[in-house]
């Protein structure tokens, strides 16, 4: 799940990148309104964590511009101004959630997950497909009740597919979801992850759609 974090404080930005990364997100981090706007224009994110007081303007402006473009990307506002009036302003400007500083990292991660889930139009917190269960909050997967150990990337690929059952997801999209800007993507990285997943969940769980990408198999092999 790829998210954009907009925060001007370097220490907090570092904490958010690392902390949300540990929580299973692929994090792109920017420090200004301008950079946030260009990132949002260039890339689809599952959610945005947006600070309000930025050096070149207010996060609310970024949010307003986003909503003007009919972009429904879930936005969690992050700010030290957490008076009720500020929260109301933020939510009415189109934010999906509002977290006051200082916050609990796990809570923030949960709120971002919830916002992203609602963004995909899902109510279930746990994904299920043919005996395989995926819990994004705990970052655990199980098959027929037995836990299956997955790496962070494998989990990301599986989640991307399970969030869109029956849909073919291209390799490029999977790469975008898995890797942030600074990360080097090896040319066959996605194939390797798919290969490992098949090994752990059964060879027929993920189908290859030649020339298009991957999707979950409909029936038992």
């Amino acid at each position: 799940m790829r998210i954009l974090v907009v925060e001007d404080d370097p220490m907090l930005l570092d904490g958010l990148s690392v902390g949300l990364g540990l929580a299973g997100f692929t994090v792109d981090a920017v420090q200004t309104c301008e950079d946030a706007s260009s990132a949002l224009a260039a890339q689809d994110y599952d959610a945005v964590v947006l600070d309000l007081m930025l050096p070149d303007g207010s996060g609310l402006d970024v949010l307003a511009a986003l909503r003007r473009r009919k972009d429904a990307t879930p936005v969690v506002l992050l700010t030290a101004r957490d008076q009720v009036a500020d929260r109301i302003t933020g939510l009415d400007a189109g934010a999906d959630d509002y977290v006051g500083k200082p916050f609990d990292l796990d809570e923030l991660a949960a709120r971002v997950r919830a916002a992203a889930r609602r963004g995909l139009g899902r109510a279930d917190t746990v994904l299920e497909w043919r005996g395989v269960t995926l819990d994004p909050a705990r970052q655990t997967a199980s098959r027929d009740g037995r836990g299956v150990p997955l790496t962070r990337r494998e989990f990301g690929v599986l989640r991307a597919l399970m969030e869109r059952p029956g849909t073919t997801v291209s390799r490029a999209v999977l790469e975008e979801m898995l890797y942030g800007w600074q990360e080097e993507v090896e040319s066959n990285a996605v194939e390797v992850h798919i290969h490992h997943l098949r090994g752990k969940l059964g060879a027929g769980f993920i189908k290859t759609v030649r020339g298009l990408g991957y999707r979950l198999a409909e029936e038992s092999p």
């Binding site: 404080d9 220490m11 904490g15 902390g19 030290a80 500083k101 200082p102 990292l105």
Partner: peptide, 26 residues
């Protein structure tokens, strides 16, 4: 309050990372 809350949020986040992460470098 605003200026204090941001670094405090950073401190808390970093502390939670330090507690949660097993990776020595992180």
């Amino acid at each position: 309050a605003h200026e204090l809350k941001t670094p405090l949020a950073g401190l808390k986040t970093q502390a939670q990372i330090a507690l949660a992460s097993g990776d020595g470098a992180v």
